[in-house]
Design a protein around this nucleic acid. Structure first.
Length: 241
DNA sequence: GCGACAG
DNA sequence: ATCTTGTCGC
């Protein structure tokens, strides 16, 4: 039985040659090589298509396993229309700057299991606001060749001044002289989130999307849903292992 | 060498 | 991320 076309271990496209996407590495050195080889494929440009479906993905851990969850929403109505999960063995430790190598494979599997392909995907982490301009949203976005957005709860790199207190107010996140993201207030008087484009979208579009997906809480709905689903599946696994 | 450091 | 009850506040 061969692996599916978009399974985490066999990305779409050629497996060798100039467009080859490296297999997932098992150590930091290999991961650095992958980031170096793929960072140039990140495209920061306005979203081309109209958004009809948005997905949010997140992960939970249980012992040596990763539980990835993906939640699909109709946009801009934010009607929840589907879920998908994937459980895999942890192959990489958590090292700041290399989060995608730990959670990425399972997330890609979950995304591929959604009943419909979303127009853009939200991630709990950074997009290009990363030491190598290749955070988890950018990495998965390049592997799947899809529009992605990073929406982290805290900062990894960059400097910024506190945004205004009102919902929708933001300040720019600057790293090495480059504007790589926005520090956005999604609710009044709550700590801001760090938004950065992942792939095939620009900062303006990323901020706009996060705001439109945030109704009542600090975290956008698709991400909250994925967080809850991953936790629910985790509890299920606990009761049977 | 020291401090910072997504989840 | 994860270990974890009650509690203060809108």
């Amino acid at each position: 039985m061969s692996a599916g076309r978009n399974s985490p271990d066999s990305p779409s496209g050629p497996v060798s040659g100039p467009d080859a996407i490296p297999a997932w590495p098992e150590d930091i050195e290999g991961a650095k090589a992958v980031q170096l080889a793929l960072r140039g494929r990140v495209r920061i440009s306005p979203l081309r298509t109209r958004i009809e479906y948005v997905a949010g993905v997140d992960a939970a851990f249980h012992g040596d396993r990763v539980i990835a969850a993906a939640c699909l929403y109709e946009f801009p109505s934010l009607v929840h229309v589907g879920d998908a999960c994937a459980v895999a063995g942890v192959r990489f430790p958590y090292v700041p700057g290399f989060l995608s190598f730990r959670e990425g494979p399972a997330m890609i599997e979950a995304i591929n299991r959604l009943g419909r392909k979303p127009d853009v995907i939200l991630f709990d982490g950074q997009g290009i606001a990363h030491p190598k301009g290749f955070g988890i949203a950018s990495h998965v976005g390049v592997v799947l060749d899809m529009p992605t957005v990073g929406c982290a709860k805290s900062r990894l790199v960059g400097e910024y001044s506190p945004p205004g207190p009102g919902k929708g107010e933001f300040s720019y996140l600057v790293y090495r002289g480059r504007t790589v993201g926005a520090v956005l207030r999604t609710r009044e008087n709550v700590s801001p989130v760090f938004v950065s484009p992942g792939n095939r979208i620009d900062l303006k579009g990323a901020v706009d999307l996060v705001l439109k997906c945030t109704v009542r809480y600090r975290i956008p709905e698709p991400l909250r849903c994925a967080d809850h689903l991953a936790g629910k599946v985790k509890r299920t696994l606990c009761g049977s292992s």
